[in-house]
């Protein structure tokens, strides 16, 4: 059994420093690894990410993150990524990591993801350059996720994203904004590979539980959804 803790959308800054730490100190009692599904900061500044790094560093389990749209806001992705790396927090974007968990190897592939919408109600790469650029970014991100998952040599695999791969975990959000919350292309990538669990955030008013068309469990771990410092899921490799 591999126990996976996960949380996203913690939106930390100096005013929220230490908010999660009391519960995080005990994460080793619950889980073997902690995943962070993006939107760790409010504005994506180096100062805010230092607060995040201090909140999530020095824990008894490895910590693996993807960034979210808020973490991109200050156009300082390399710098905020370095802050996390300096605190031994792995940051994935189109790549993966394999962690030894007891006798098992847990593979995690991660991307930020992007919007575009879901089957039957999604944008196409047609028309103005702005629309084509929007859709192509999603296509590129989903392609990177698929390749990273494909390349994983592990006993169990997790897809870690910020944006949602399915609409079910968005239920509670206004349907009009679903195209800004996720893309079916992410779940296509998940279903094309052998994934045991998909984790995302981004949708504060969404639902925790869903499933891809091929039956892979999807969990929305946005902190306003799970209403705890982290959620825990166990998978049997």
């Amino acid at each position: 059994m591999i126990r996976i803790a996960a949380v996203g959308d913690v939106h930390l800054d100096e005013n929220a420093r230490g908010r999660l730490r009391p519960a995080l100190e005990r994460v080793g009692r619950h889980a073997d690894v902690l995943l962070l599904s993006g939107d760790l900061t409010r504005h994506g500044t180096v100062g805010e990410m230092r607060v995040v790094a201090e909140e999530f560093s020095g824990l008894p389990v490895p910590v693996v993150a993807v960034l979210g749209n808020h973490d991109h806001h200050s156009d300082a992705v390399p710098e905020v990524t370095d802050v996390l790396h300096d605190h031994d927090i792995e940051v994935l974007e189109g790549d993966s990591v394999v962690l030894p968990i007891g006798p098992h190897r847990l593979g995690i592939a991660g991307v930020k993801g992007f919007g575009g919408g879901f089957a039957g109600k999604c944008a196409s790469a047609f028309g103005e350059p702005e629309i084509k650029a929007f859709v192509r970014h999603t296509v590129d991100v989903a392609d990177r996720l698929r390749k990273a998952l494909d390349a994983l040599d592990a006993d169990a695999r997790v897809a870690l994203m910020h944006y949602a791969p399915i609409p079910e975990t968005l239920q509670g959000e206004p349907p009009e904004i679903y195209p800004f919350l996720g893309s079916y292309l992410l779940s296509e990538a998940i279903d094309a590979t052998d994934v045991d669990l998909a984790v995302h955030g981004h949708a504060h008013y969404g639902a925790e539980q869903g499933m891809t068309p091929a039956g892979v469990p999807v969990r929305n771990v946005a902190q306003p959804v799970i209403r705890t410092a982290f959620a825990v899921y166990s998978i049997e490799p």
Binding site: L20, R26, H30, Q223, I226, T228, A229, F230, Y233, S234
Partner: peptide
């Protein structure tokens, strides 16, 4: 302000 307490028991998948 959203809660940030330690969770109860986790969810077993499969």
């Amino acid at each position: 302000v959203v809660e940030a307490d330690e969770p109860g028991s986790g969810e077993e998948l499969r």
